[in-house]
């Protein structure tokens, strides 16, 4: 029984990690005042690119890098369209997702059915051998640790560094930031590209670790969940982490419940559960209006027209 629970927890971690990457990236993007709805598309292109790279070169590191690079490239298209040409962020983001779904299916056509053994796990002598705890805290793949480190780093960056303060200022009022002489467009470019890299990384994690293979549309709406997580976590990194694990946890538990066959609830209802529960919980914990005012980027989604 212990073994089952432990296995379940381990799968929860792998289910949550891609959400953590995608959501923390989008959080930085939104904090700079940009709303990129193309997360789903960037994840898919990241997934197919990393799987292709691994398939061709056999190197896991190159695979991860390829996924991130692909995400950055897609974000670059988005940034150019919305920040330079001032197209609508909502429409451009949706187009990016549709584009990503299409282009990833095209590239991935020859990869369907190709097998990959998955990312290597980090095995630390002695520590990994501690019963239960050893397997809970050690022996994951390297990206799991990276995702946690990334959340801490982003949180520290936004709260403690001057660059983070400028990023928040740009997201709060681009006109005031511009008036004080801060480079609004450049800050937003960097944030958008960072978000793209994170979404690409999330995609790479899906095709290389979570389910080491390529299936068309394999992100299955996780990009959208990541977007929702950012809002419901009221733009706070620690809550994004919590939300991602909550969602991952319930997805896995309901899968186990369905598989056990002991619970007599229609499977469709069970499949809804993670989405519903995550949204309800996060809505409940983010009801404080003051907290939202302090954290929500006020100029999100608004086009910036420099006046001088």
């Amino acid at each position: 029984m212990n073994e089952t629970i432990l296995l379940a927890i381990l799968t929860i971690i792998t289910a949550a990690t891609p959400l953590v990457f995608a959501a923390i990236g989008e959080l930085v993007v939104e904090k700079s005042g940009v709303l990129n709805l193309g997360v789903e598309g960037m994840m898919l292109v990241g997934a197919v690119s990393s799987f292709t790279a691994v398939h061709v070169t056999g190197s896991a590191s190159l695979g991860v890098l390829a996924g991130m690079f692909a995400g950055v490239m897609l974000a670059l298209i988005f940034a150019f369209l919305t920040l330079n040409l001032q197209s609508s962020q909502v429409a451009t983001g949706l187009a990016l997702t549709i584009f990503g779904i299409g282009v990833s299916a095209l590239i991935g056509q020859p990869l369907i059915g190709v097998a990959y053994e998955g990312l290597p796990k980090v095995q630390i002598p002695v520590l990994s051998d501690i019963p239960v705890l050893g397997r809970l805290f050690f022996g994951h793949d390297i990206l799991v640790y990276c995702s946690i480190a990334l959340v801490i780093a982003v949180s520290w960056f936004l709260k403690r560094t001057r660059a983070g303060l400028i990023l928040r200022a740009v997201g709060d009022s681009h006109d005031a930031a511009h008036a004080l002489g801060y480079p609004v467009i450049r800050v937003r470019y960097l944030a958008t590209l960072f978000g793209g890299g994170c979404a690409g990384l999330a995609g790479a994690y899906l095709s290389m670790a979570y389910a080491p293979m390529w299936v068309e549309n394999m992100s299955a709406g996780r990009g959208w969940i990541a977007l929702a997580l950012v809002v419901f976590a009221s733009w706070q990194p620690s809550r994004v982490l919590f939300g991602a694990y909550l969602f991952g946890g319930i997805s896995i538990l309901q899968l186990h419940a369905q598989a056990s066959g002991t619970i007599n609830i229609p499977s469709q209802l069970m499949s809804m559960l993670p989405y519903l529960a995550t949204i309800i919980v996060l809505v409940l914990i983010s009801r404080d209006q003051g907290r939202i005012r302090r954290n929500a980027p006020a100029s999100i989604g608004k086009a910036f027209h420099p006046t001088t």
Binding site: R162, L165, I166, A169, D172, S173, A177, L180, Y182, R293
Partner: peptide, 21 residues
């Protein structure tokens, strides 16, 4: 005023003066 609503007084002043908060 060129102020950032969601930021604190300290952060606003730091941004206007190019120093750390």
């Amino acid at each position: 005023f060129s102020l950032f609503d969601s930021l604190t007084v300290l952060e606003n002043i730091a941004l206007g003066m190019a120093v750390d908060a």
